[in-house]
Design a protein around this nucleic acid. Structure first.
Lengths: 146, 146
DNA sequence: CTACAACCTGTAGCGACTACAGGAGCAAGG
DNA sequence: CCTTGCTCCTGTAGTCGCTACAGGTTGTAG
């Protein structure tokens, strides 16, 4: 099977397949005499694994670890479950954060009376706390973005 | 106020501030004789606006539009509410997607008995449909045996 | 024979930053 | 005076996970 077949079979873009090979997430495949890549069903399985993991939001370093584990059936799956646990927590916190955003955006949108910018809740809600008469230029430090 | 003060006041990284200037999201500030950038409270407000919008997930092109609108109080806020509406929809669909992931990940993690990789639900769940010891996997997209 | 598809390599671009090299300016302390 | 240390400067390159292109070769069908 050559790269186009693999691409169709797994739904992964050809360029992405070559990219995965370049960064070592997929092994270098055998080549035909004309230098074209040849893949086995095992390669397709591996790529399917990668694809599914990407869809679940795992990053490529994590996927590397999961792939390495997958090849050692007798190893403990401690690492795998830790990675999945971390991913789950990351997803949960993203959800929590997005729910807050959703709230704020929904409020913005629903309160916008579609009049002039000067009365627009969307714009207003984005503006930082205004120095309404009183200024606080003490530059309270502290939270630098991580 | 110079760039470090602005950074502390808004919580935006110094490098990011310069980046925003480079791409024209922040206007080029006045300079002191020693070439250092000087910012006004209005700049801080603008940057605060940008930061908040970024936190809400707006991309920089959208933010550019919102900033331009903000400066024209008499304009209609139609664009602003449309952008916010789109952002809201994007957030909603991201939430929906993440809830599905959360489900799948939670199932993975909870079913993992922390034994060997060969029995690990995490790894198993990521693998694509296996041919489970079946002979003749001829079904798929004109593949030839390797 | 010609057209076209599929493949090849290598490089550059995306978005939104972040990091670093290598230097300048300035205040305080010795 | 000189050093130390801080902030700032410019310019460039790296991050992540792709995606797109240029410019070439090979294979296949009509």
């Amino acid at each position: 099977m050559q790269i186009g077949d693999l691409s169709r079979q797994t739904g992964v873009n050809i360029e992405t397949i070559r990219y995965y090979e370049r960064i070592g997430v997929l092994p270098k495949p055998a080549r035909q005499p004309n230098r074209r890549r040849t893949y086995s069903p095992a390669d397709a399985e591996r790529l399917g694994f990668i694809r599914h993991a990407r869809e679940l939001g795992f990053d490529l370093p994590s996927i590397r670890i999961l792939l390495a584990l997958q090849e050692r059936p007798e190893a403990s799956c401690e690492d795998a479950s830790r990675i999945a646990q971390e991913q789950l927590e990351a997803v949960e916190s993203r959800i929590a954060r997005l729910l807050l955003l959703q709230d704020e955006l929904a409020r913005m949108v629903s309160e916008c009376r579609r009049g002039r910018v000067s009365e627009c809740r969307v714009i207003e809600a984005l503006a930082p706390a205004r120095p309404t008469a009183r200024s606080d230029p003490s530059g309270r430090a502290g939270t630098t973005a991580p």
